[in-house]
Simulated assay, not measured.
Amino acid sequence: MNEIIQLNEELQQDYTLTAEQIQAYQAQGHILLPKLASRPLVEAYRPVIQEEVIRLNRETRPLEERDTYGKAFLQIQNLWEKSDKLRSFVLARRFAKVAAELMGVYGVRMYHDQALFKEPGGGHTPWHQDQIYWPVDTDQTITLWMPLVDIPEEVGSMTFVSGSHHRGYISKLEISDQSHQTLKQYIEGENLPQVCYGAMTAGDATFHAGWTLHSAPGNPTPNTREVMTVIYVKDGTKVIEPDTNARKGDLRTWMPGLQPGDEVNSVLNPLIYKA
Rank of each mutant, 00 (worst) to 15 (best):
R93V: 14
A44E: 13
N78F: 15
Y25S: 02
A19E: 12
L116G: 10
Q75P: 06
E119H: 11
P40Q: 10
L7F: 06
G189Q: 09
V264M: 07
E241L: 09
Y133N: 03
R55K: 14
M110R: 06
H124W: 11
G189I: 05
S266Y: 13
F117G: 00
E241H: 11
E119R: 14
I5F: 04
S157H: 01
P62N: 07
K97Y: 11
N8S: 08
Q75H: 15
Q114C: 11
D235N: 14
E52N: 02
V90T: 13
H208A: 12
L148W: 02
I4L: 06
E153N: 08
K118D: 00
V48T: 09
H30Q: 08
S164Q: 09
T229L: 14
P135H: 12
A216D: 03
R55N: 10
A37L: 12
D14I: 04
Q75N: 15
Q131N: 14
H112Y: 15
E52F: 00
E188K: 08
S162P: 07
D262V: 01
H180T: 04
F117A: 07
R87Y: 02
E101C: 02
L56V: 01
V149Y: 08
V230A: 14
A72L: 10
M158R: 08
A27F: 05
S157Q: 03
A72H: 12
E43T: 01
E263W: 08
A246F: 11
S38K: 04
R39C: 02
L36P: 00
R61D: 11
V90H: 12
L148F: 04
E174C: 06
V48E: 13
Q50N: 08
T182C: 12
L192C: 05
W127D: 04
E43I: 01
E20G: 00
Y232N: 11
G203Y: 15
S162N: 13
G189V: 06
H208G: 13
V239I: 12
Q129W: 12
H112E: 07
M255C: 10
L11S: 07
P34N: 04
K82T: 15
Q140T: 09
Q6Y: 04
E52S: 02
T143D: 09
V48N: 05
G261Y: 06
D84H: 12
I4K: 06
D250L: 04
V105L: 00
D150I: 00
